[in-house]
Design a protein around this nucleic acid. Structure first.
Lengths: 153, 153
DNA sequence: TGACAATCGTTGCCTAGGCACCTATATTCC
DNA sequence: GGAATATAGGTGCCTAGGCAACGATTGTCA
């Protein structure tokens, strides 16, 4: 699950040329992390993208397609098709909402509910792997720097 | 130029829910940075992906399609078409290489050479914007943490 | 109330990367 | 030298997201 944007801003030959640009470095870290996550999720036949949706619903951060789109910056058309796929897999369910007939509520099926913890565990495995050797302070500092970048947006 | 993978690992409603996961945070930072870069490059009608290729060639980090693919983790088929596009735009040129007829050398055209500094400047603008308020030490530390993540891969 | 705007989900079309496969050429190694 | 292997680039097919447009529904407000 790797696009040129993942490796964006030039990833010189892996670990040959030193990363000179923070932007490059961030992109490169992201691609590595995501590839690792995809590999970790492969046994479940779930893509990162699908996990995102399932997790967002599982965590109660969204209960409709529109909510999902807002929450994770996703195209509504793409989301329709994404939900189709997850429904076909039997992990997610669309429910009519009586008080607003434009919207359909989303909820995990029993199967989806059963699967999700395994997906979340896979994510934790990947995260822990990449953070090997980081102290709690370093993780906090890292988060702080990333959040400051976001705030600068 | 934003995919769900960009926002991967759940980006809760922007700046509403605190980012709890480093993975999320990295993905979110990347998407913001890339969106900003795309916006900055828009006047030149160049995508981030195209800039990556141009920059890699301009910096002498690759001079063939295969070199580009290795350097930035890109699919050969996609690269063929990418180069097609850049050639159509008159920014890049394919040249036969006498000593290896499998390969075609790549080089920027005059137009490409003229354009590239503007693209590089756009990237600097974006990077500087996101690093506002960072001390040199902080940038170094940030790079260090990212590189340690890569080393943990 | 009734016109207008906003929202929700969907669809069709376009773009673009991933993968499998192919041909041509180079390299390796017996 | 010659067969096997590797590499370079290209093509077709598939998937999937972005965008524009649409119908249905709901909200706004004059």
């Amino acid at each position: 699950m790797t696009s040129i944007f993942d490796s964006a801003l030039l990833n010189p030959a892996p670990s040959v040329v030193p990363q000179r640009s923070l932007l490059r470095l961030i992109s490169r870290v992201r691609i590595e992390v995501m590839d690792a996550l995809d590999a970790e999720l492969a046994p479940f036949e779930i893509s990162s993208a699908q996990m995102i949706v399932l997790a967002t619903v599982a965590n109660g951060e969204a209960d409709s397609a529109a909510g999902l789109c807002k929450g994770i910056s996703y195209d509504p058309g793409a989301m329709t098709r994404m939900i189709d796929r997850l429904e076909q897999k039997g992990l997610l369910r669309r429910l009519p909402r009586p008080d607003d007939r434009r919207t359909t509520n989303l909820e995990l099926t029993e199967e989806g509910t059963a699967l999700y913890p395994k997906l979340a565990a896979a994510k934790e495995v990947v995260q822990a792997r990449f953070l090997r050797g980081f102290s709690a302070d370093e993780v906090r500092m890292f988060e702080g720097l990333l959040n400051r970048m976001l705030a600068n947006r």
